[in-house]
Simulated assay, not measured.
Amino acid sequence: MHGELTTPGIKVAASTVWEILTSQGIDPAPDRAATTWADFLHSQADALLACDFIETVTLTTQRQYVLAVIEHVTRRIRVLGTTAHPTAACVTQDARWPWTSLAHRPPTRT
């Protein structure tokens, strides 16, 4: 909270923030952070997608970039597109596919 207050230029001591939180019965942040990374991923799996480029070389020695997405809830990997020369427009177009098609189907847990 102290950092968030100083960003817009509000001058307040960290100890003052601590005193206010303690007087209201709010524990320091480390005590409130009982959620583990694994718990977070499990609770948010329906909404999480991870994407990355995979660089590969074909049998004809042509370099290809494959845009792939993994759905955390199903652990399925989907190839969205491949190109020899990825551009912002190409990636944007390929990235629209999972948002439109995955948003319209119910989540399935395995």
Rank of each mutant, 00 (worst) to 15 (best):
M1H: 12
M1N: 07
H2D: 08
P8G: 03
K11N: 09
V12P: 04
V12C: 09
A14I: 03
S15N: 10
V17D: 00
V17H: 01
W18I: 01
E19C: 08
E19Y: 10
T22A: 13
G25M: 00
I26S: 00
I26C: 01
A29G: 01
D31I: 10
D31Y: 07
A34P: 00
T36C: 01
D39R: 09
F40W: 08
F40K: 03
F40N: 07
L41G: 01
L41T: 15
H42F: 09
H42D: 15
S43K: 13
S43I: 04
Q44I: 00
D46P: 05
A47M: 12
L48R: 03
L49F: 08
A50E: 07
A50G: 12
C51W: 12
D52C: 07
I54C: 03
V57N: 09
T58E: 11
L59C: 05
T60M: 06
T60L: 08
T60W: 10
Q62D: 09
R63V: 15
I70L: 12
I70R: 14
E71A: 11
H72M: 10
T74N: 02
R76E: 14
R76T: 11
R78H: 13
R78P: 00
R78A: 06
R78W: 13
V79P: 02
L80H: 06
L80N: 07
G81D: 01
T82A: 13
T82I: 11
T82H: 12
H85S: 15
T87D: 06
T87K: 12
A88Y: 01
A88V: 05
A89H: 05
A89I: 07
C90E: 07
C90T: 14
V91R: 01
V91F: 08
Q93C: 05
D94G: 01
A95S: 14
A95E: 02
R96I: 07
P98I: 05
P98N: 03
P98E: 02
T100K: 06
A103W: 05
A103M: 07
R105V: 14
P106I: 00
P107D: 05
